[in-house]
Amino acid sequence: MTATVNELKRLFGPFEGDRDNLPPFDEIYPGKQAPIFRRREGGGLALEMATWGFPGPVAAKGRPVTNVRNLSSPFWRSALERPDRRCIVPVSRFCEWTGEVGKKRKVWFGMTEAHDPLFAFAGLWRPGAKDAADGPFMAFLTCEANGIVGAIHPKAMPVILRPTQAAQWLDGGREDACALAIPFADADMRLID
Rank of each mutant, 00 (worst) to 15 (best):
M111D: 02
W125H: 14
K104E: 08
L47Q: 07
A139R: 02
L118W: 04
S92M: 09
G128Y: 02
V91C: 15
T112E: 14
G62K: 05
W52G: 08
P136M: 08
M111K: 12
P64Y: 09
P90M: 03
P127Q: 12
P136V: 03
S73R: 07
K103P: 00
D134T: 15
T142C: 09
R126V: 03
G123V: 10
S73W: 06
C95G: 07
E113P: 00
A46N: 02
W76K: 09
N67K: 04
S72I: 01
T66L: 11
R126D: 00
W125A: 10
R126M: 15
A120Q: 09
T98I: 13
A145Q: 06
E96H: 03
R93C: 10
R105V: 13
V91E: 08
E41T: 15
E48F: 03
G102H: 08
N70I: 12
A114K: 12
A122N: 10
P55F: 11
G110H: 06
E96W: 04
A132N: 08
L80C: 02
C143Y: 04
S72W: 00
W108Q: 02
T112Q: 12
F121S: 07
T51C: 08
I88L: 14
F37T: 01
P83K: 06
L71H: 06
P57M: 06
